[in-house]
Design a protein around this nucleic acid. Structure first.
Lengths: 199, 199
DNA sequence: CGAGAGCCGTATCATCGTGTACGGTTATTG
DNA sequence: CAATAACCGTACACGATGATACGGCTCTCG
C-alpha cells in the first residue's frame, strides 16, 4: 500500500472515530464500530494501531501536532509581544475549546492507563507555555516569564475546558471567544504592562 | 430497613465505588464490582440506584452538597470581603482538585448522557459563583460583580482541574495550594482593589 | 504477467457487564 | 411471636467488546 493512500485511510478512520466518540463517549466507542464506519476491517485496525488506546493515542498525537504548529507559527511572528498575544489568544482558545480537543480530553479522562493524558500534556501545554514564557521574558525581563505565562493561561482559558468537557458550557462562537480574549488581555495588560491600548 | 442504617449502607457503597473508580476508571467500574466490594447484592444496587448512572448521580449530588455547604459557610462569614476570599480560596481549590471531585469529573467526562455533568454544574459552580459575585458586588458596587467573580475563579482555579483530570497534574499539597492562592489573590487585589496587603 | 502483501468483510471465541430472578437469611413491624 | 419486607449471595440470559483468524479480492512490485 502506497504511503499516500494509507495516510488517507488513516484520516478516514480517525474521522470515523471522532464521530462515534461524539455520539457515544469513549466507553461506547469500539474498534469494531470505528472499523465499520470507516469501511476498514477489524484486522487492519489492530494491525495499524495495536489496540483501542493505540488508535486514540495516534489521534491525540496528530491533533497536538496540528495545534502546536498553528500556535508556534503565531508565536514565532516578528511583531511585538502585545500584538502576538492578540493573535495567539483566540487561536489558543478556539483550539482548546474545539470539538476535537474536547473529545480527546474526554477520552483521556476516561482512560485508566493515563497514557492519553500524558500525550496530551506533552504535545499541548508543556510545548506551548514555555514558548509564551520566553516571549514574555523578552518583553519584560524584569518579571518572571513563567508566572506571566501562567497568568495569561489562567485569564484566557480559566476553567472553560473542564466546563466544556462535562457539558456545562457549549462550543463558543467567534463572538464569545473575542469577548473572553478581550477581557483576558485587558486584565493581563493591566497586571503585566504588556499589550493593552496600543494598536 | 431503618433510615440510619440505610444511610450507612449507602455511604459504604459509595466509598467502594470511589475506590474502584480510582483503580479502574469509570468504564471499568461495574455495579457488580461495587456491590461485591461493599457487600451489597446486585439486586439492592439496582433497587436503590436504578442503574449505574443513578449510582454516580447520587454520589455527585452528595459530594456537591457537602462541598457547597462548606463553601457557603465560609462565604456567609461576617468579615470583610478580602478576609472571606482568603478563607474561601484554599477551601475551594482543595475541593475542586481533591480526589473525589477529580473522580467525579472523570465520570462526568466519560458519561455519554451528560447527566452527571449537569448535576455537577448545578451543584457546583452555578451555586457558588453567584454568591461570590454578590459578596464582591457589596464590596465594590461600582464594578461588575459577576466579572469580578469570574476573575477570581480564573486566577484561583485556572486550568488546574482539566490538568488534574487528564493526569498532567498530581494532587496538590497544602503548600502548593497556599502558593497558588497567594499568587491569585495578589493579582486579584491588584486588579479589583479588594484584599491585598490588609491583614 | 505472476507472486506476494495488504486489506475487506465476516466469523469465531472468550470474557465481561447489565439487569433480572431466586432461595435463604436478617430486620422490621403489628 | 408470626408475617412480611428487605437484603445477601448466587445464578442466569443476553448482548457487546476485544482480539484473532480466514477466504477472497485488490494492489504493488519484480
Amino acid at each position: 500500500m502506497e504511503g499516500g493512500r494509507r495516510a488517507e485511510r488513516e484520516r478516514a478512520i480517525e474521522a470515523a472515530a471522532y464521530e462515534i466518540l461524539a455520539e457515544r463517549g469513549y466507553g461506547g466507542t469500539s474498534m469494531l464500530l470505528v472499523a465499520q464506519r470507516a469501511r476498514a476491517s477489524n484486522e487492519t485496525m489492530y494491525r495499524w494501531y495495536g489496540d483501542k488506546n493505540g488508535l486514540f493515542a495516534a489521534m491525540v498525537r496528530r491533533n497536538a501536532q496540528a495545534a502546536g504548529e498553528r500556535l508556534e507559527a503565531a508565536l514565532g511572528s516578528s511583531r511585538g509581544a502585545g500584538a502576538i498575544l492578540r493573535d495567539v489568544a483566540p487561536v489558543l482558545l478556539g483550539l482548546v475549546l474545539g470539538e476535537r480537543a474536547v473529545a480527546l480530553n474526554r477520552a483521556a479522562a476516561a482512560d485508566p492507563t493515563g497514557d492519553l493524558g500524558r500525550i496530551i500534556a506533552e504535545g499541548g501545554r508543556r510545548r506551548i507555555v514555555p514558548l509564551i514564557a520566553e516571549l514574555l521574558r523578552r518583553e519584560r525581563p524584569d518579571i518572571d516569564g513563567e508566572a506571566l505565562a501562567e497568568l495569561f493561561i489562567a485569564l484566557v482559558i480559566g476553567d472553560q475546558q473542564i466546563r466544556r468537557i462535562v457539558g456545562d458550557l457549549g462550543p463558543p462562537d467567534d463572538a464569545a471567544i473575542a469577548r473572553r480574549v478581550a477581557w483576558a488581555l485587558d486584565a493581563f495588560a493591566r497586571l503585566s504592562g504588556i499589550g493593552g491600548d496600543r494598536p
